[in-house]
């Protein structure tokens, strides 16, 4: 849920000279390395080494007759696999379907609920509660909501005389159903950042707009939205990352089905590794996914100054 995307601009920029710890010169490198050692050990084991391993696996094939170097064959067969292409497409649709509506809703919630008052505080809490429950717990609830015929949604639709649908069983609807769950779960989280962004808009800007006789839409268009741009950039990247790394609900609700309709990248990797024993293809898919994540992160570094608005 929580991703840190610090303003790396600041992080990577040259820093003011740090305090010279007045020590013997030999100790200058010793102490920092000693203090970094615990972190570096874990990073080496669980961040750097796995990358090496994934790259090795991705370029090798384990057959019943042994292991051999195959170059980019695994990538070729990966992209030739219609299921993988479907997973890529699904993940793209899922990302668009979750990020767009989540952000629009989060903005609407934040605009309507910014400010004091018990009702507003209550409503903000309502929108935020889904953030606090595990994704599997949310999926357990939606299992019944989406149940065809006798589930919560279909039952109440039937009482209105409307036909329900086989929400998770129809390949045309399943991904949308999963998307709805994600929007429900995450919109409140993004609302938080936008609320903070709104707080940071100087009052003068709004007052000036009011004095100019700007209506609510104009104020939104010319004052609020431009001021929120960094917040949106930041939240958008978090939401995109979530769309790739959060697939718990797929395990509970659909297992990637029906007909691959909800197969997302991470689930595809899991399936290749755990169910098909295809280490090469799983590794190749991991490399592709990491590439996408890297591109996203680079995008966030390039675009955002970080939401100083959120301060």
């Amino acid at each position: 849920m929580t991703h840190a995307l610090p303003t790396t601009q600041a992080a990577l920029a040259a820093e003011p000279p740090a305090a010279q710890v007045r020590r013997r010169p030999g100790a200058r490198l010793l102490l920092p390395l000693a203090l970094l050692c615990p972190s570096l050990v874990f990073l080496a084991l669980f961040t750097y080494w796995p990358v090496v391993e994934v790259l090795w696996d991705a370029t090798h094939q384990v057959t019943r007759r042994g292991t051999r170097f195959v170059g980019l064959d695994n990538f070729a067969s990966l992209f030739a696999d219609p299921t993988f292409r479907r997973a890529l497409l699904n993940n793209a649709l899922y990302a668009i379907g979750t990020v767009g509506p989540s952000l629009v809703l989060a903005l609407a919630f934040a605009l309507a609920l910014n400010g004091a008052g018990r009702v507003r505080a209550l409503l903000r809490a309502v929108f935020f509660l889904p953030v606090m429950i595990p994704l599997v717990a949310a999926a357990a609830l939606f299992l019944f909501l989406f149940l065809p015929g006798i589930g919560l949604i279909d039952h109440h639709l039937a009482r209105l005389g409307l036909s329900g649908a086989n929400w998770l069983g129809d390949p045309d609807l399943a991904l949308a159903a999963i998307t709805v769950l994600t929007v429900w779960k995450n919109a409140g989280y993004y609302m938080l950042f936008i609320l903070a962004g709104l707080q940071a808009i100087p009052d003068e800007a709004r007052e000036a707009a009011l004095l100019d006789g700007a209506g609510p839409w104009q104020r939104l268009r010319y004052v609020t939205l431009p001021a929120l741009r960094p917040t949106f950039a930041f939240v958008g990247v978090i939401a995109l990352l979530n769309a790739v790394t959060q697939v718990d609900h797929v395990f509970v609700l659909t297992k990637g089905g029906p007909s691959d309709a909800t197969k997302l990248l991470l689930f595809y990797i899991y399936e290749q590794a755990a169910e098909r024993y295809d280490a090469g293809r799983a590794a190749a898919a991991t490399v592709v996914t990491l590439g996408l994540l890297a591109a996203l992160t680079a995008l966030s570094l390039g675009r955002s100054q970080g939401p100083e608005a959120a301060r």
Partner: peptide
């Protein structure tokens, strides 16, 4: 260090499990 922000552990679950 910052590389870890991008290489989210959950994406590396297959090699990490081996480790």
């Amino acid at each position: 260090f910052l590389v870890q922000l991008m290489l989210v552990p959950v994406v590396l679950l297959v090699p990490n499990l081996k480790t």
